[in-house]
Structures are given as C-alpha cells and as structure tokens.
C-alpha cells in the first residue's frame, strides 16, 4: 500500500493499493526511480492536489486499477516532408463509461471541482481520467452560445466592445457556412 498526502494544512493522507496508484504515470515513474526505498512507510506529498480532489483521484484509481492498460500511440515527430493527410494525430474517440459518468463532479456547483480534478489528473499523468474529464467538458460546451461558454468556464469577456466588434467581423465568414 502507498500513502498519498494532500497539500492541506494539516495534510490529509490516503492509503491506496500500489497497483491502483500506479495508474498515475508520475507516481509510477517515481516509484521505479526510488526502487529500494521503503515507500510503504513514507507518505508521498502531492503539493498540487487538495484533499477533496485527492479523494476523487483515489476513488477513481481504485475503481479502474484492474482496467487493461491504455494503448499508447508513439509520438510522431514533426516531419515537413510528410505529405500524407494530416488527420492521423487526432485523439481517438473517448466513450465515458457509466460508472465514470456518475463519478465525475458534473453539477453546476461542482464544476470548479471538475477543473481541479482535470488539473490533478494532468499533474499526476492519469491519461484515461484526463480524457474522460475533458471529453465531458468538450461535450458540455459543444453547441452552446458564447455567453453560456463564458459562464460555464467562469470566464469574463475581456474584450473591449471595439475589439469584439472587429473580431466578429473578422470571423463573420464562418457564420453562414
């Protein structure tokens, strides 16, 4: 078992099976690098993750610890000579499993927690969790108005009226297509 500590004061500690915690590529690499240390006795501090978020992370990795490992695509280096069609590097379609749909903090009042979860998944390199979270957000903003997207993402309209008008004119081409 591995202990993970949140960044709260005092830190909140969670004990997680090693198999589950190794779904995080960051922690897995660290454990491999520190082979020989007694990691079961030493809590691992996660300075970027608070307790509620870490609790979600732990819940997710415990649920998915027996999933088959995701197939990683080899990174394609930039190659100007490649004339093939350029859509090969797009992310594959992600389907959010039923359990994950219920697990994700999707209520309006929880959306900040969802973004914190995405941040933590990115920080800990838990790609499948990052994928389903981002897929959820992408689906949520798809087809919505500018105002709705701003509201959902807690973003302020930081354009001046003149800038906004100019930009609207510049992108007017897309409206009628």
């Amino acid at each position: 078992m591995i202990q993970l500590c949140s960044n709260d004061d005092p830190p909140v500690s969670f004990t997680v099976p090693r198999k589950a915690v190794e779904l995080s590529k960051t922690i897995k690499t660290m454990l491999e690098d520190l082979e020989g240390f007694d990691m079961e006795q030493t809590p691992i501090p996660l300075p970027n993750v608070d307790a509620p978020t870490l609790e979600l992370i732990v819940k997710w990795v415990e649920q998915h610890q027996d999933d088959p490992p995701p197939v990683e695509k080899p990174r394609v280096e930039d190659d100007d000579s490649d004339d093939s069609d350029a859509d090969d590097d797009q992310e594959p379609e992600v389907v959010i499993p039923e359990w994950d749909k219920k697990f994700l903090p999707t209520d309006d009042e929880q959306k900040n927690q969802l973004f914190k979860l995405l941040n933590a998944a990115n920080y800990l390199e838990i790609k499948p969790l990052l994928d389903i979270g981002c897929k959820y957000v992408a689906d949520k903003i798809s087809g919505q108005t500018v105002e709705w997207v701003r509201d959902y993402l807690n973003m302020e309209n930081d354009y001046t009226p003149e800038e906004e008008a100019k930009l609207k004119e510049e992108i007017a081409w897309a409206e009628g297509l």
Partner: peptide
C-alpha cells in the same frame, strides 16, 4: 489540456464562436 484534450474534441464548426469567448 485546453487545446489537446478539450478544444480538440469540440467541432471545428464552433471554433469561430469560441474565438469570442475571451482573449
């Protein structure tokens, strides 16, 4: 995250609108 994971999954038809969300 925003580009490679979220915007990547939004239809390109909506990008014109999303330009207006914020700088």
């Amino acid at each position: 995250i925003l580009v490679r994971h979220i915007l990547q999954r939004v239809s390109p038809a909506q990008y014109a609108q999303l330009h207006l969300v914020s700088r």
